[in-house]
Amino acid sequence: MQRVNMIMAESPGLITICLLGYLLSAECTVFLDHENANKILNRPKRYNSGKLEEFVQGNLERECMEEKCSFEEAREVFENTERTTEFWKQYVDGDQCESNPCLNGGSCKDDINSYECWCPFGFEGKNCELDVTCNIKNGRCEQFCKNSADNKVVCSCTEGYRLAENQKSCEPAVPFPCGRVSVSQTSKLTRAETVFPDVDYVNSTEAETILDNITQSTQSFNDFTRVVGGEDAKPGQFPWQVVLNGKVDAFCGGSIVNEKWIVTAAHCVETGVKITVVAGEHNIEETEHTEQKRNVIRIIPHHNYNAAINKYNHDIALLELDEPLVLNSYVTPICIADKEYTNIFLKFGSGYVSGWGRVFHKGRSALVLQYLRVPLVDRATCLRSTKFTIYNNMFCAGFHEGGRDSCQGDSGGPHVTEVEGTSFLTGIISWGEECAMKGKYGIYTKVSRYVNWIKEKTKLT
Rank of each mutant, 00 (worst) to 15 (best):
R3W: 10
V4Y: 06
M6K: 14
I7A: 13
M8F: 11
S11N: 10
P12E: 07
P12C: 14
P12F: 15
I15P: 04
T16I: 09
C18H: 04
L19A: 05
Y22A: 13
L23H: 03
S25W: 13
C28M: 04
T29C: 09
V30A: 12
F31G: 15
E35S: 10
N36I: 08
N36R: 10
N36F: 09
A37C: 04
L41Q: 15
Y47T: 15
N48I: 05
N48S: 14
N48A: 15
E53F: 05
E53R: 15
Q57H: 12
G58H: 13
G58D: 14
G58E: 04
E67L: 04
K68C: 04
K68W: 05
C69D: 04
S70A: 15
E72I: 15
R75K: 15
E76R: 15
T84R: 07
W88G: 15
V92R: 12
D95F: 05
C97T: 01
C97I: 01
S99A: 06
N100F: 07
N100D: 11
P101R: 02
N104I: 00
S107C: 04
I112L: 11
Y115Q: 02
E116R: 04
W118E: 15
W118N: 15
C119F: 01
F121A: 12
G125N: 01
K126A: 14
N127L: 05
C128N: 01
L130Y: 10
L130C: 04
T133H: 05
C134I: 02
N138R: 05
N138W: 04
R140D: 05
C141W: 00
Q143G: 00
K146L: 11
K152C: 04
K152Y: 08
E159G: 07
E159T: 09
E159S: 09
G160N: 06
L163P: 04
E165D: 11
E165T: 13
N166K: 02
K168G: 04
C170Q: 00
C170A: 01
E171Y: 09
E171D: 10
V174M: 07
V174P: 02
V174Q: 08
V174K: 08
V174S: 09
F176A: 04
F176N: 08
G179S: 01
V183Q: 11
Q185G: 13
L189R: 11
L189P: 09
R191F: 08
R191G: 12
A192I: 08
V195H: 13
N203Y: 09
S204H: 10
A207Q: 12
I210Y: 05
N213A: 08
I214P: 13
T215W: 06
Q216I: 06
S217E: 12
F221N: 09
T225V: 12
T225D: 14
V228H: 08
G229M: 11
G229R: 13
D232R: 13
A233E: 05
A233R: 05
K234C: 03
Q237M: 09
V242P: 00
V243G: 04
G246E: 04
G246Y: 06
K247Q: 11
A250F: 08
G253T: 11
V257Q: 00
N258H: 04
I262G: 02
V263K: 00
H267Y: 02
C268H: 00
C268N: 01
V278A: 05
V278E: 03
G280L: 02
N283D: 11
I284P: 06
E285Y: 07
E285A: 08
E286C: 05
T287I: 13
K293Y: 13
V296W: 02
I297D: 03
I299V: 08
I299D: 03
I300M: 08
P301F: 11
N306M: 06
A308Q: 14
N310G: 07
H314I: 01
D315V: 00
D315Y: 01
I316E: 00
A317D: 00
L319T: 01
L319R: 00
E320K: 03
E320L: 04
L325V: 03
V326M: 14
L327K: 04
L327S: 03
L327T: 06
S329R: 12
S329Y: 06
C335H: 01
D338F: 03
E340V: 10
Y341S: 07
Y341P: 03
T342H: 03
N343V: 04
L346Y: 05
L346E: 04
K347V: 03
Y352H: 11
V353Y: 04
S354T: 14
G355W: 14
V359R: 13
V359L: 14
L369G: 06
L376Y: 06
L376M: 14
V377D: 00
R379F: 14
T381R: 13
C382Y: 02
L383G: 15
R384I: 07
T386G: 09
C396R: 02
C396E: 01
C396Y: 00
G398S: 05
G409H: 14
G409F: 12
D410I: 15
S411Y: 11
G412R: 03
T417R: 02
V419N: 06
L425S: 00
L425R: 00
L425K: 00
G432V: 09
E433H: 13
E434G: 07
E434I: 09
A436R: 14
M437G: 13
K438F: 10
K438R: 12
K440W: 03
Y441K: 02
G442C: 13
T445I: 06
K446M: 05
V447E: 00
S448H: 09
I454V: 07
I454H: 01
I454W: 00
K457G: 06
K459T: 15
